[in-house]
Structures are given as structure tokens and as C-alpha cells.
Design a binder for these strands. Structure first.
Lengths: 239, 239
DNA sequence: CGGGGAATTTGCGCATGAGCAAACTTTGGG
DNA sequence: CCCAAAGTTTGCTCATGCGCAAATTCCCCG
């Protein structure tokens, strides 16, 4: 992870992050200005970056690791909203006109995060080319995904939803291997069920069946998709 | 509806809309400038204002009526995302960084809509005080609602979800009467089922049961809630 | 290298709510 | 005023997938 830190431990290097969409339209000097205002934060696996309902005092950029965004129901059930891959903004309550975080962000594995005080949000949005636009795009992508999930939950069977959830994680957070794609962070059956409005047991049965059919292999906390086409067929309900 | 049109049929009057949150922070002259650029559009009940997937050429403000936002699945099922009450912006794809409409907007009853070319979006966002902020707030409110629905669909029974959907419509789009609150636009059992990921039949049975218990009265396309507390209890799953 | 907790598997029973068919009611247009 | 279409009710059946229990496996950590 040290490669992300440039020459000095203290000073973040603009050249490392300029390939991110967020900085694509900015001159290096602007990027450096932004980075100089950031505080880096290392979050251990399993720890939360911020909690639903607390004051949205900061916004964040994920440099490395994976964030899981979740909400808790009044009676203790957990629902996983989505996963965030490196390079994306998160905890951007201001972009939603809110002043508390709408959900909890948990480090699915050890994460390196840049943190800015939310008071800088308006300034960044107006002063830096493309910042507001990229924030909108990020929000839009998440709204689209939520939309899709509502649609799936309303119209599709559990089997299709679980297949779709795994496909999505594979596409957004997958790591290609010689034999398929593996999901790049620890993922339990419980979490998959919390993503699909299902149960641990049903997900376990589905994954076992798919493993028997050679669609994927799942070790503990780990999913490796071998036959993407078959999984797409399952998600579409064509089998 | 003529009251919304000021003295002349052609010129919209700023004083009529300045009570809307969107214009709250603006001087009258700014409001008038914005209105002068708008084209009014009267949409008959049942007709769509724009369709999912088409180029997002305009953004809209609902002056009167009620908009139903829906999506269609590849295999023809309809899912209703939410309803929009008068005074709100909609079709604001740019606020999501998108260039096609993410959903279809249908007039639940005859609607009066103001329409602006999307090319004005960036200008409005940067030039008029509070415009961008109010747009964010609108997006945020809808994201929050989607979030809540995902959570409900994942963790709650159909009965609770239907109760929650009716409560929401009642709160957001209700009209108080001497004996409770009635939902201010035509609403069929089919639509309620499309909102809750349920079926026409199940919704019919639930409404009948609740009518028997005196919680609400539902005539054809029409729901009138009498006992709000009871409905809240049903939504919470406490009965 | 062994203990213990976390994650997973599997069997069994059953309630929820979907699916279908058919009859009935309301409403608006000609 | 009547007809047709749209909306609604109701009975019946049945599959999905949840709930629980118990056993098993896998890792992590000391």
C-alpha cells in the first residue's frame, strides 16, 4: 500500500491519483491543492468509517481496500446497500442535501481513505473543474443501482437476485484470474443474503448448487466465478 | 388551475411560485428570469411526460397534479418508484450525471408542468442561489426513499410493506379531510402492488381486511385512511 | 499445533403469498 | 341509457424459500 504515498510519508503525491475520474479534468496543481487539504486515514478491516445517522462532518475518497455500505433496521436486521471500489468518493451527504450520513460505511478489508472536512465541499464543488459533475455521476450511479435492486426485489426470484448480486460485485469489484473472476474482498453468505433480502441458508444452498454445476467456486468468505455466461443466464431467469 | 397563470395566459407570475422551496432563497427578479425561460405544458391524465431511456432533453417542475415515476422490467413487469407532489423538480437527469432519463414519468392525473431545456441546467445551478442545493435535496430525498424501500423489501412482510407504502403516499400526497386523510390521486390495487413488489390479489385482500377493521375505506381507485395510528402499527409489524 | 469461534452445510416442516379462474362492480363514453 | 372496459373480489391450490436445529468444517490466534 506504500506505493500510494509518494516519496514522503506525509505528503500525498498528485501524480498517483490523477488517473481517477474525479481528477481527470483538473490540472496537477489543483489536484495537489486538494490533496494538501486531505487527511489520510487507515481503517482496519471490519471497522466502520462512519455511522448512519451521525453528523456528516467529513467526506471521503477510497484509495485502497473495499467499503461496504449498510443500514440497520429498527429491529436489528442488516441490509447491505452496495460496495465501493477504490477511486470513488463516499460519505458525500452534502451531495444529497443531507447533514447526517444516510448509511454506515464499513471497511470490508483494510482501507486507505482520504478525508476532508465537509465544510470544504461547497468550495470544491464550485472551484474545481469537474468535481461537482463527478460527484453527481457517483450519486447517479448509486441511485441507478438502488433503482435496479428495487426492481429486482419486486419482480425476481431469490435465485435471480443472488446471481445478479454476485454478478454486480464481480463486475464492479472483481479481480480477473486465469480461470474467471474472483471477488476482491471477503464476502460471507450472510452478507450476500443481506444484499438480496434472503437468508444465509438459501444463499448457501444456491452457491452449493452452482458449485456442483461448475458455475463458481466458493471457499469460506470467498467467491470465484468461473462461468460468467451461466451466471448471467441464472440472473436473467433463463434456467 | 387558472389561478397559477397570473394575469396573462402567456406570462407566468413569479409571485405564485415563490413560496416553493426551490425559489425560497431567490429574489423575485431571479424567479421571473427563470420563469421567462420556461415552457408550460399540460399533460393529460395517464400520459407520460418522458420515457425511461430517452435522451434527457429537458428538466421539469410540477405545478399541479401528481406524477408517478415507474420503470419497466425487460419482461414487462412494472415497478412504481415513487410519486411526485406539486412543487417538486423532476426529470433532473443532470443532477445524477446522466444524459438519459432513468425512469418514466406518468401523469397520475392531469398535470401542469414547467419545462426547461436541459442545457440551462448548469447555468441555473451556478447562477441562482439555492438552485443546486435544492436540486441536491430533492435527489437526496428520493435516494432516501429508495433506500428505505430496499430495506423494507429485504426485511418486511408484504403486509407491512403495503401499509408503509400507503402511509408514505398519505404523508407525501395526502389531503386531510374531516375524517382522516385521503390520497390525492387515483390509485389502483395494481399500482400499490407494483410499489410493494406484491400482487394485485394480495393487496386487494389486505385492503378489504383493513376496511373491515375500520382502518381505512377504499373505493375504486381511491383510498381514504381513517385510523392512521392503526396503519402505523401495521407498518411496524406490531399486529 | 491445538482450541475455539466463525462460517457453512444440510435436513425437515411449514407459512406466506403468488398464481389462476371466474364472477362481480363501477364508470365513462357513445 | 346501455355496453364495454377497467377495476376489484374471492376461493382454491401450491411452490418458494424461510425458520430452526444440529453437525461439520475452516481459520485464526495464542
Amino acid at each position: 500500500m506504500s506505493k500510494l504515498w509518494g516519496n514522503s510519508v506525509k505528503k500525498l503525491d498528485a501524480s498517483v491519483v490523477r488517473s481517477l475520474p474525479l481528477f481527470a479534468q483538473m490540472p496537477l496543481s489543483d489536484i495537489q491543492d486538494i490533496l494538501d487539504l486531505a487527511r489520510p486515514r487507515l481503517v482496519p478491516a471490519g471497522q466502520s468509517v462512519f455511522e448512519e445517522g451521525t453528523e456528516a462532518s467529513h467526506f471521503h475518497l477510497l484509495l485502497d481496500g473495499h467499503i461496504r455500505v449498510e443500514r440497520l433496521t429498527p429491529d436489528g436486521d442488516r441490509v447491505v446497500s452496495f460496495h465501493i471500489p477504490p477511486g470513488q468518493l463516499f460519505g458525500i451527504a452534502k451531495a444529497l442535501g443531507r447533514d447526517v450520513y444516510p448509511a454506515t460505511a464499513v471497511a470490508a478489508l483494510e482501507c486507505l481513505v482520504l478525508v476532508w472536512p465537509m465544510t470544504l465541499w461547497t468550495r470544491f464543488s464550485t472551484e474545481y473543474a469537474g468535481f461537482a459533475q463527478e460527484a453527481s455521476r457517483t450519486v447517479g450511479a448509486r441511485v441507478t443501482e438502488m433503482h435496479t435492486r428495487v426492481l429486482e426485489m419486486a419482480t425476481q426470484h431469490v435465485e435471480q437476485r443472488v446471481a445478479a448480486a454476485i454478478l454486480r460485485m464481480m463486475q464492479q469489484n472483481g479481480r480477473p484470474t486465469e480461470d474467471g473472476i474472483e471477488i476482491a474482498f471477503p464476502i460471507t453468505r450472510k452478507i450476500v443474503s443481506d444484499m438480496t433480502g434472503s437468508t444465509l441458508f438459501t444463499v448457501s444452498r444456491l452457491l452449493s448448487a452452482w458449485e456442483r454445476e461448475g458455475v463458481l467456486v466458493s471457499r469460506r468468505k470467498h467467491i470465484h466465478v468461473h462461468n460468467v455466461a451461466a451466471l448471467e443466464r441464472l440472473a436473467a431467469g433463463q434456467s
